[in-house]
Design a protein around this nucleic acid. Structure first.
Lengths: 214, 214
DNA sequence: ACCTGAACACCGTTCAAGT
DNA sequence: ACCTGAACACCGTTCAAGT
């Protein structure tokens, strides 16, 4: 193909192509060259749209977070602010687990985009509605964001764990150094398989503790 | 230098050299080639000690987490289990912020090493001591780990934010879309400058909520 | 066992040039 | 404005070979 204007490609097309690679081959595979190739372009052509790989990643984060702040709680639930927090947390988590490897994207650079701020603002508002003062509400919103992102990071790390080698047949069991951790394996907390009930319990306990000061 | 046995280098030396590069030049600069060069070795020589870059990173994580589970609370504090949780959380956080860029290391691969399990076990034990049942204690320990790691990830993202361009002089202020977030700027939650008091408040609220079911 | 040197298949980014 | 092609300074990893 000859060089020259082609006009048919937008920033959104590039971000879409990047997400396709992210989901299919993981975060490490999202290279400028791979994204360009997926679009039938030369790597250097992408620099017409984004000044750097980091700028492309920032655009990906913004798209990932779009709409999370507007997540609407299930109808009829009370109190409204608590359900709004749950809805936002679930939406945020859903976006992350819905795009495999995106936690690496989220922790790869600054989280200072508009969509990221929307999420923060929505959470602080919910806690203000719950009766917290300005500072406490801000700290509470931050705590919820940290909890969701941290839990997703732990999930992702667990999912990256290679197949567990089946325990070799031993006659006497060594007393484990981590008996309590092993006894909780059925919860799936460290295998990326935590149930919705566990997540909801944790978030409710966090909210309880945060609003108790109101 | 001629090839041949040199015997004077250990796995620990390699991990130390890798941390030096991590702290001075960031996570992205920790390449097999750079670590080898820092030790006066050829890149391929490192493959005698670690089968892959991932194995080296896993060894770095283990060293980062060494001793965290044994963190001892400040003397005389009560109740002991709450202070133990604070001590472990502070130690974990201290290791992360003490090594710039190490949150990327922590979220780069599986967190299934022995030291990582030690931290999990210690937290679960503390919550069991607080009166929680086995499942709740496991979920509570997981929540604390997620909170610390998530907060560190948010801090790191904020620290990576490029210098804020000073607000251009405008005659009329646009009404902000994020008034509550901006009003909380003095807390430093999103600039990596959160005070110890904020972190302690958040963790105490989380603990309060978690143990309220006991 | 520990190491080198060459090689393979990749990176992000810059630059001059074409249309 | 949008694109190509060549180039620069990097990657992780493998392989044959030396001591």
């Amino acid at each position: 193909m000859k060089p020259g204007p082609r006009r048919s490609i937008s920033q959104a097309d590039i971000v879409d192509a990047a997400f396709e690679i992210l989901e299919e081959k993981g975060f490490a595979a999202v290279s400028v060259r791979a994204v360009a190739a997926a679009l039938g372009l030369t790597p250097t052509a992408l620099y017409t749209y984004f000044p750097s790989k980091g700028a492309l990643q920032a655009a990906m984060i913004e798209q990932l977070l779009a709409g999370v702040a507007e997540a609407v709680p299930d109808a009829g639930a009370e109190p409204a602010w608590r359900e709004r927090i749950h809805a936002i947390a679930a939406a945020l988590r859903g976006r992350i687990v819905g795009h495999a490897g995106s936690i690496a994207l989220l922790t790869s650079g600054p989280l200072d985009g508009d969509r990221s701020r929307d999420v923060a603002e929505a959470l602080i508002s919910a806690f203000a509605e719950a009766g917290l003062g300005a500072d406490e509400a801000a700290r509470a919103g931050h705590a919820v964001r940290a909890q969701v992102i941290g839990a997703a990071a732990l999930d992702d790390a667990a999912a990256a764990t290679p197949e567990e080698t089946p325990a070799p047949q031993t006659l006497w069991k060594e007393p484990s150094r981590h008996p309590r951790l092993e006894a909780s394996a059925h919860l799936g907390l460290d295998t990326g398989g935590a149930e919705e009930a566990s997540r909801r319990w944790t978030l409710d306990r966090l909210i309880d503790g945060l609003v108790a000061t109101a």
